[in-house]
Amino acid sequence: MEAAIEIRDLRKSYGDVQALDGVDLTVPEGSFFGLLGPNGAGKTTFINILVGLVRKTGGEARVFGHGVEDDYREARDHIGLAPQEFNVDRFFPIREVLEHKAGYHGVPPGEAGDRADEVLKRVGIYDKRDTRFDWLSGGMKRRFMLARALITDPDLLILDEPTAGVDVQLRHELWETIVDLNQQGTTILLTTHYIEEAERLCDEVAILDSGRVVDVASPEELMDRGTDDIAVELRHAPTAVPDFTAVDERVESVDLDGTRLVVTAHQGGLVAPEVVRCLDEQGHEIVDLEIQRTSLEEVFVEMTRQGEGRATAEVSQ
């Protein structure tokens, strides 16, 4: 299958600041791909290089096989972008803004009008079609950004913080629309600060930190790299802390507080039966057991904290 985005050794510097420092990334066609990273990690720079708003300093960036600078017209024709910052034409009612945008992509006038109506209905702001962007509420503005990205019927939909500042209900509605598009074959590239969003929606995520890709994996794989807590409530307090590290190498630590035993381990769901079996063999009676899965957010914070440490070490060298 062709890659929707193919990135090799992508670099961007602003004077001494290295915004992107040799990024390698492949986003498969049809995937729902997340780009996570703290502020200043280079996510928006990365996106802006794809759509032609930032010039790369080095490396290669291709969209459906088209170089974003040499074949910029073909590359841009595949992309629909909903940026984080509002960048909408304030002079015209939103329906006309959509018609213009469709026209720039070669959609004839009659069809552009039909498409504008269709996407406005899809995001639920058709009754505001004759209103100018400035007069829309915050939530409607976010909906419109998605409508504008969809007007050209893109193969690759890039969403930069699409649900920033919207309420829970709207966030869920937007998720539903995006998932629906992905199921119809549109490749989605999503950046978000809501890790739950990535956990819930993405097939694969890349963690970007200080202009570098720290890791690329599915949310489940990333969560497996974190540690889960298996909390066991015993009938009677043990006289010593049971040693599970020798039983299963995935166990990281064991803490005992009275009758409450907490085993910290990778892949806690798989380790738990082993813990139960051992406790049973040692004659302990289990009253309650709970597995607290690590969240993607915890893994993300841990990974980017390691990045901070690395960056600090590099600076001090």
Binding site: V51, G52, L53, R73, P83, F86, D89, H100, K101, H105
Partner: peptide, 14 residues
């Protein structure tokens, strides 16, 4: 200034 020129710049127009 208002960045809406990006609607044109991100299009496939030459």
């Amino acid at each position: 200034w208002n960045r809406y020129i990006e609607e044109v710049l991100t299009s496939p127009l030459s």
